[in-house]
């Protein structure tokens, strides 16, 4: 009996390792087939070209704008001020002390280098990543606000509030985000910017129409979650709060919403992850977020394979961090 159990367990354990092996086999064969099919079309992988799109060193040169002699170099910490006495007076340049290539008394001609150094610059992919992050965060914040308000309006007994909320939710959920972005940019954007132009006010950049499209899109989904969250809280909670003399608003604020939001945190997380990914659509209205940035880099570097993998990986970094953050919040909230 005992040996039978042991044999079973061994068998189970072997099975387990066999299937772990199968998993890795699948992964490796996918990678290999990718590699060999790339070789079929003579694709050369150049991963070393990728880092410069995150950050690169730029050569900076400071040159003289006059002919003359270096009168003095005064150093103050890491900064040095070079004074050049020319025919038409004295010219001074502030340069990093370590980058100096002239000395006091040197004869200088117009265009000569006074200092040369390298400076780190943020690459286009990094800029795109930052923009994606920025757009997503703003859209999430507004999406939550819109969703909260609409979700509460959705269950209101006031028909104006309720029907407005339903109309908004159904319109947004019933049409593709891509179309909504076009409407925001080409229709509402044109109307609004024309209106602003006639009053001599500055134009609103495309970015904000993109953010508005994302926020309104997310808001509709968040609203439905908020509604479901509120309705999932037992009626006794409202009754208890109201019976203590709290107004509707106070009971929502202190009793119902804190519980409802806790409950909808997991689906909210999913919605926000979708939003980060959907922000890739904003490239079509000339917002240079991560996907658009990648497309631009692909056309200049001609390394599409590496770049698209990197692009996907960067999205994964964003979505994964967000999901970790929300999981942390969830755990902390439920820790009693």
């Amino acid at each position: 009996m005992g040996s039978q159990l042991l044999a079973n367990r061994l068998k189970d354990r072997n099975y387990y390792y066999v299937w772990v092996g199968v998993f890795f086999l699948i992964i490796i064969s996918i990678l290999l087939s990718l590699y060999f099919s790339a070789r079929q079309i003579d694709y050369t992988w150049r991963w070393y070209r990728i880092p410069k799109y995150f950050a690169y060193q730029e050569q900076v040169e400071i040159t003289s704008e006059t002919d003359g002699e270096v009168e003095s170099i005064s150093k103050k910490g890491k900064e040095a001020v070079v004074r050049i006495k020319g025919l038409e007076g004295v010219e001074s340049h502030a340069v990093p002390a370590s980058a100096l290539v002239v000395e006091e008394g040197d004869q200088i001609y117009y265009g000569d280098r006074l200092a040369a150094y390298k400076k780190w610059r943020v690459g286009i992919l990094m800029q795109g990543l930052w923009l994606t992050l920025k757009v997503s965060i703003i859209a999430i914040v507004f999406g939550i606000l819109i969703g909260l308000f609409t979700g509460i309006a959705r269950i209101s007994s006031n028909p104006a509030l309720k029907w407005s909320a339903i109309t908004y939710i159904e319109l947004i959920r019933g049409s593709p985000l891509l179309v909504q972005i076009f409407i925001w940019y080409f229709v509402l954007g044109t109307l609004l910017n024309n209106l602003l132009a006639t009053h001599g006010i500055d134009q609103i950049p495309a970015l904000w129409f993109g953010v508005a499209a994302l926020a309104c899109f997310t808001g509709a989904y968040v609203a439905e979650m908020v509604r479901a969250g509120i309705q999932s809280i037992h009626r006794g909670q409202t009754e208890a709060a109201r019976s203590l003399g709290m107004t509707y608003v106070k009971s929502m604020q202190h009793v119902i919403l804190p519980q409802a939001l806790r409950r909808i945190l997991p689906p909210l997380a999913g919605q926000f992850i979708s939003l980060i990914k959907d922000s890739s659509l904003l490239g079509i209205i000339a917002i240079r977020e991560l996907t658009k940035a990648t497309r631009e880099v692909v056309t200049t570097s001609l390394q599409p394979f590496e770049l698209w993998f990197v692009c996907a990986l960067l999205y994964l970094v964003l979505t994964f961090s967000l999901s970790m953050l929300l999981q942390y919040l969830e755990r902390r909230q439920f820790a009693v």
Binding site: G236, Q237, E239, A240, S243, V255, Q259
Partner: peptide, 13 residues
């Protein structure tokens, strides 16, 4: 007017 319910209805959070 204080009210006590059959199912307590305490605020769980």
């Amino acid at each position: 007017v204080g009210m006590v319910f059959q199912s307590f209805n305490l605020f769980p959070h």
